[in-house]
Amino acid sequence: MKCQRCPKPATFHITDIERGKPKEFHFCDEHARQHLSPSSEAGDKADISSLAEKLSQGGLEKARETSAADKQVCPCCQMSFQEFRNTGRLGCPYDYEVFRDELMPLLENIHEETRHTGKFPRRAPRDPVRQTELIQLRNEQKRAIAAEDYEMAARIRDKIKAIEFDQGR
């Protein structure tokens, strides 16, 4: 069998899966190497923080926007976008809302998709406001304790208990 791209004999027989369908290629040594070498944009997708860094370093104008985005802080867990860029880890589920504009291009780069099409939990997700209520209350409680405002801390504790009770915990 001859190589698909030149008259040399095909020594590599490669099957790629594209959109779930196998596609066969027959190449000589050289063209096989070309075919198999990862495209330049693939890069190391695992290194999320460097990717996040790269994405936020656009042109000058972009850089100005970015510094504003960097300073953005999640009201729920107090994580800044810059901190996420440095560590590659988010601070709470609500960060996906707060940093939505910055995260979407990142998600597209990593997964080539931006919308979940897999499993849904059987129980419906709670409305977004209530979703973060407990995390925020616990933070307020921590701050009240740090400020030695124990009366406030106790009030917050009761609120937390009430919500947990509502949720059947």
């Binding site: 589920p93 996906y96 931006t114 897999g118």
Partner: peptide, 27 residues
Amino acid sequence: DQLEERMAYAFSSTLGYLTACPTNVGT
């Protein structure tokens, strides 16, 4: 499924299961 009966997972209807690192989000 059985674990989910006992605890509320962090889940968004558009992004799926929310994870600490965006490389795992969705499924």
